[in-house]
Design a binder for these strands. Structure first.
Lengths: 188, 188
DNA sequence: GTCTATATGCCGATAGAC
DNA sequence: GTCTATCGGCATATAGAC
């Protein structure tokens, strides 16, 4: 065998994710990725159809990791719905801060071709919708969940992009905003 | 005059904004931009230092337009603080939907070199902080404003990127989420 | 001090040999 | 499955015409 298999699709995607997180998405060159795997750039095309498909696969991997982070947070959280929701939101903020480039790639992608598998994010959403339904009422569960996801995602996005430039305790603002939002959905 | 000025910095930036909004940021080629202006690509470098500087200038222009949209919304809004805030948030969502690519470029940019002038966004924030302070109390104004900006920005971002895939009335969810958030900050 | 013409080097992607 | 060779497109820089 003159050219033995030196890599596979999984290794390519994992290495791409590491490089993206280290240098940013637009700094990822296929030649650099191939070099990190000990091969040449054109060989990558035997495993992934295009750079766009590669980014979509990285997004799927990232969403799997985010799902696992949510799962760990839920397992360690108390039983009250509000506490469980807060644990998940904190986990999302922590994940975004630990993996800013991959987090941005996962959610800030307008092009559908680079989006992760739909199933994955669906799995993330349904348990949260049930939890928030217990606070806001089942008929408001979807709208309340969407607002909560928006609040958390918007906060970490603005935070990561340096749009909160006037100092102060951002962690405290995050907690207070979520507390206010959840309180606002509960009937008085 | 053999080579009369065919363009200037303002025309370049405006045309770049139009092309970005039409095709997306990463589809913007300087050769294409120059062709749209009736000149050749290298001539652009007499007006802008680099593509990064050009994108920063586009961001500044976009933030000016967003500021004007906020101003128009405030002039047409009633006097109650909650109503004025809602008018601004609606204007932000409408602006994002009308200019999705430029909106994303303005806020989803990690690289500081491509960010708009700080002054501009500061001018946007201060009147809103005063308004929300009247609901949540002045001592909570900054945190409450940050949460509100996060909620609105996160919602329109997820909406534009197609992350709300389960149908339903997104406009109603937007309104309900903001109402809950503002209600949650008001002392009971 | 405009613009045109030209050159360099990097990137994504394809074709074909082994 | 990997390689070499190559293409087209891009941002960028320089030289020079007017």
């Amino acid at each position: 065998m003159p050219y033995p298999a030196q890599t596979d699709r999984t290794a390519i995607i994992q290495t791409a994710q590491v490089l993206i997180e280290r240098d940013g998405v637009d700094q990822l060159a296929l030649a650099q990725l191939a070099a990190a795997l000990g091969i040449k750039a054109p060989s990558l095309y035997r495993h992934v159809a295009s750079k766009t498909a590669l980014l979509a696969a990285v997004n799927t991997l990232t969403s799997q990791q985010l799902f696992q982070a949510f799962d760990r947070a839920l397992q360690a959280a108390p039983t009250l719905p509000a506490a469980r929701l807060l644990a998940v939101f904190r986990a999302q903020r922590a994940f975004a801060q630990a993996n800013p480039h991959c987090y941005a790639l996962l959610f800030n992608t307008i092009a559908p071709a680079e989006q992760a598998d739909e199933q994955m994010l669906e799995q993330l959403a349904l348990p949260l919708q049930e939890l928030i339904g217990r606070l806001a009422g089942p008929e408001h569960a979807l709208a309340a969940l969407r607002g909560a996801l928006a609040l958390v995602h918007g906060f970490v996005t603005l935070e990561l992009n340096g749009q909160f430039r006037r100092g102060g305790d951002l962690g405290a603002a995050f907690e207070a905003a979520i507390a206010a939002y959840l309180a606002g959905w509960q009937p008085r």
